[in-house]
Design a protein around this nucleic acid. Sequence first.
DNA 1: GTTACAGTTTACGTTAACGTCATTTTTCGC
DNA 2: GCGAAAAATGACGTTAACGTAAACTGTAAC
Lengths: 147, 147
Amino acid sequence: MPSKPAPDRERRYSISELAAEFEISTRTIRFYEEKGLISPRRSGGNQRYYDKRDRARLKLILRGKRFGYSLEEIAEMIGMADVDLDEAGQIRRSLAYGETKLAEIRQRMDELRLLEQDILSVKARLIARLEQLERGGAKVGRGRQGK
Amino acid sequence: MPSKPAPDRERRYSISELAAEFEISTRTIRFYEEKGLISPRRSGGNQRYYDKRDRARLKLILRGKRFGYSLEEIAEMIGMADVDLDEAGQIRRSLAYGETKLAEIRQRMDELRLLEQDILSVKARLIARLEQLERGGAKVGRGRQGK
DNA sequence: GTTACAGTTTACGTTAACGTCATTTTTCGC
DNA sequence: GCGAAAAATGACGTTAACGTAAACTGTAAC
């Protein structure tokens, strides 16, 4: 039985590498760190280095943002993903929190379906109107413009 | 054949009614109007009155927000929902725009599924750790805290 | 070693999306 | 017709989420 599984020389990312990959600024990444959302290690002369997990973390943050979560909310989510395993009680609490989030996500899915329906029905209306126009009909709507 | 289908006395909402229903402030609603997102009619002494369509509009705005769209982006979406039927060319353009949005929405759905997977996998890890704890095992993770 | 580029910290600036008065009108119940 | 509640308008304040500039340090190629 080998004493250690060999730490497997993990891939390291510089801040600008990640910035380029996710199309955000380095400032943004440092900002997330200020807010406690990521905590990369420093190498030699005080430079940040990101590993696989940090990268996944960043991905999660951006994904959360795309769904309208604030950084603070994301921090909570991550707090859950980050408990770094302590006490059983803590873990149970985190599991409960996770359930809440899952429920939220499922509701979001339903809402997305609704949004899709909204747009589809607008589409239908437009197509109908278009066909009417092509048949030479002329009719005016409410004519209220939001300019 | 009756000359007119009778305009069907539509339900009217005051600004505070809508604010209460959607749990936002009246200021917010007026703000959306400033930005051209809604344009309610005024009744008698200059007061805003919202009809069914305005209400649906507001709903759409809030839904959009929950998905991280900015008001400006939502305005675009709505621009589409609002063309108020002019020329056939315009309509075709709007239809194309709608297709883009639909594609976006479908991608969002995929992402939501990914987010769900993220959380589910965290959950699995936590449960595994919990069971280990209950069997009396003790092991420490990386122990990096983002405080 | 030096030069040029990438990274670090500090600090002030900016923008979107409202919040919060203060003041003036309207509306509504009596 | 009147007082209280609701609405309108205008103006300034606030917060989150970065942008931007300056001044310094580390790192990589030659």
